[in-house]
Amino acid sequence: MKIDTELIQKIATLAHLELTEEEVKTFKKDFKEILNTFSILDRIDVKGTKSSFRPLEQKNILREDKIKPSLTQKETLSFTKDHKDGFFIGPKTIE
């Protein structure tokens, strides 16, 4: 995979991050190193091995449609300092 400024900028945009030129340079170096480290995995022969997406192979765990008590509004909002009139305050969505 080619790690260039364009790719770093694209990932930053998707993550809503603004990077300085200095930071882009650092990330370019870090990205390359991380990908290099993990490329070791490419050398393992996985022919005939079934892919696994879950840490535990549990099957068919479902829930009955029964209401259980939710948190109170006070409890829910206690996890943030950014709230107003019972709402969470979130970042602006349009520039």
Partner: peptide, 8 residues
């Protein structure tokens, strides 16, 4: 608006 109000 500078921010949004969120109701989950």
């Amino acid at each position: 608006s500078d921010s949004v109000l969120v109701d989950y």
